[in-house]
Amino acid sequence: MQSESEEVSFEQIAIAVGIILLALVPLAGRHMTHLVASALLLSLAATSFNLLFGYTGLLSFGHALFWGVGGYTLAVMMSRFGLGYVESFVMAVIMSAVFGAVIGFLCVRHTRIYFAILTLAFGQMFYGVAVKWDFLGGSDGIYGLPRPFNTLELYYYVILAITLASLFILYKITRSSLGLSFMAVRDNAFRAKFIGLDVSRVRLTSFIISSIFSGVAGALYVLLETAISPETMLWTHSAEFVFVTLLGGPRVFLGPLVGGFIYSFLADVAMSATEYWLLVIGVVLVAIVLFFPHGVLGYFLKWREKR
């Protein structure tokens, strides 16, 4: 907290410049618009994942499940029940919260590897359900959904507005007494009990909020792609959230956002350059863990603090 006033002014300038650049993205063509829209949604999902990981100290390896729950709910509501965009989106948020509450309730009594394995197992379980259940389109998923406004450019602004609003809410949570209780539980769950905190309840609250915003990202992504497939719930997608967060920095609020953009652009460049693009990503991950354990943004802020 000590250097907050200085950091806020720096952050305010950086955020203002960032928002202006993001607003101008559609001028850079369809490919760039699609790329940045995807990066925004990945960043939102990673930031919500990081509420649980960086702020509450719980590593979920199945968080793509909630991206899938949001996405499938929206797709099902639109394609099977004929609901409109807004109603389907609201249902996606509600279902993400419900899944978050039920799965979170079963997971938060465990920590460390047990928590990670439980979340991984739930993610894989629902991936299996999506592959086998015809109602959800089986292995093909659900496709052919109409995109709002029928143009990518206008829908990009919907994604930008909802992502920025979601990030703002998540930021406010991290600066609230609730966010402080997350960090206290992360730092010392044992002592947290002795200041009157119900540790499981604190963890569950973080889990549900995290699930909701991952679901929001998933629901918006479905309309960007106009389709959803079971792969969105696969563990490799969950690992992307982890990777992106480590890349940007788990102890900085905007770390996953920075990581999300670096990852998306890196993957885009690597994919167009070589079919072994995953190798490039792997090398970057190893380098980050070895040389920048606080992530790119975390490292930058530490460097700035020292100067």
Partner: peptide
Amino acid sequence: LENLLVAIHSISGTISMTKRLD
């Protein structure tokens, strides 16, 4: 300071997403 703030919020029942930590 935050070590005490979290205890004070906890005992005062003001753990909430709308209550600023500071």
